[in-house]
């Protein structure tokens, strides 16, 4: 079997060039830079309104991508990449079309265009770079913001402190359509990252990559903590790494032991107000997710047989 790609063997040529305007220590820049290295020069990029648009893509007439770059309205990433792919198909060109949207443009605003493209199983790659709020406009709450986090629209007051809702499970929304490939990625698990992007590139049909990208200004963390945050998110269970291929879910990295969520929260300013009860609520939610993800309950076989027998579907041995 051919050896899997890793960070030492991946392509080295940059297609998101240096000189882009992202903050120092930007997680989105790390993710997109490496995605573009793997996708290569035969790629067309679409970015809706997001940090990546103003920092990397489209300060017209400048662009940090040295491949064709396109942008349009916030909500239609799924629709535009479908159209670009259709145009190339008509011209008889085989080009990788990728749409890179933020969490606001995916979880909230772009969800219907995304669901449409997934349902039609368009031959495109959709990447969600998830920094858990609308960071480009100055940290407003999105469907991706975790419980308890401060944002400008979920401020910390006397009665209510931070967001009261839990993070939306976008992967189950997207993978409920039978799409070709879906995976969650983290910039801290580098070889895993590279292999998943490579796999997405090689497949046909709708491919969805969900990347966790820490944000220094919105999470109120030090620029050098971007890597640690991405790693701790996986170790604490805030983020889990898996891929869904042909309807089969496969966990690609499983932490040895669950790290208490406080280890992750204390690295960030957006959680520093959190009360003990709130932390317990969040930890409870994570434990539920952890069990669901890493300890799949074995279906109780006897009971099933019993049920079948009662319904009269089970003939043999009754």
């Amino acid at each position: 079997m051919e050896k899997k790609m890793n960070i030492r063997t991946m392509p080295q040529e940059d297609h998101l060039l240096n000189g882009h305007g992202a903050c120092a220590g930007c997680g989105v820049a790390v993710a997109v830079k490496n995605v573009m290295r793997i996708l290569g020069e035969n790629t067309t990029v679409y970015v809706p309104a997001s940090c990546l648009l103003v920092s990397g893509g489209g300060m017209y007439p400048h662009s940090a991508f040295d491949v064709p770059f396109f942008y349009s309205a916030f909500e239609n990433t799924g629709a535009v990449i479908s159209g670009i792919k259709a145009g190339y198909r008509r011209q008889g060109k085989d080009v990788t079309v990728v749409g890179i949207a933020g969490d606001g443009g995916t979880f909230d605003i772009g969800l219907q265009a995304l669901a449409g493209a997934a349902e039609r199983n368009e031959d495109v790659i959709y990447i969600c770079v998830d920094n858990e709020a609308y960071m480009n406009t100055g940290t407003q709450r999105s469907g991706s913001t975790p419980f308890g986090a401060w944002t400008t629209t979920t401020p910390v007051g006397k009665r209510v402190q931070g967001k009261r809702q839990f993070k939306k499970d976008l992967m189950s929304v997207v993978s409920s359509q039978d799409i070709a490939y879906a995976a969650t990625l983290s910039i801290a698990h580098m070889n895993d990252f590279v292999q998943k992007v490579e796999k997405a590139k090689s497949k046909k049909g709708f491919r969805f990559l969900h990347i966790m990208t820490p944000c220094t200004s919105g999470w109120k963390s030090d620029p050098s903590m971007t890597y640690d945050l991405a790693r701790m998110a996986v170790e604490t269970g805030m983020w889990s790494l898996y891929e869904i291929e042909d309807g089969e879910t496969r966990v690609t990295y499983r932490p040895n032991e669950m790290v208490p969520i406080t280890e992750y929260l204390k690295l960030q300013g957006r959680f520093k107000h959190m009360s003990k009860e709130d932390i317990e609520t969040l930890q409870g939610w994570i434990c539920q997710k952890w069990n669901k993800r890493y300890c799949p309950a074995v279906p109780p076989l006897e009971k099933k047989e019993e049920e079948l027998a009662l319904n009269g579907d089970h003939c043999e041995g009754v």
Binding site: G19, H20, G21, P61, H62, S63, A64, F65, D66
Partner: peptide
């Protein structure tokens, strides 16, 4: 000045840090 794809590399961002 350079315009179009890849032209942002004329911003020498090394002075930011």
């Amino acid at each position: 000045m350079a315009v179009g794809p890849g032209s942002m590399s004329q911003n020498l961002t090394g002075t930011w840090g």
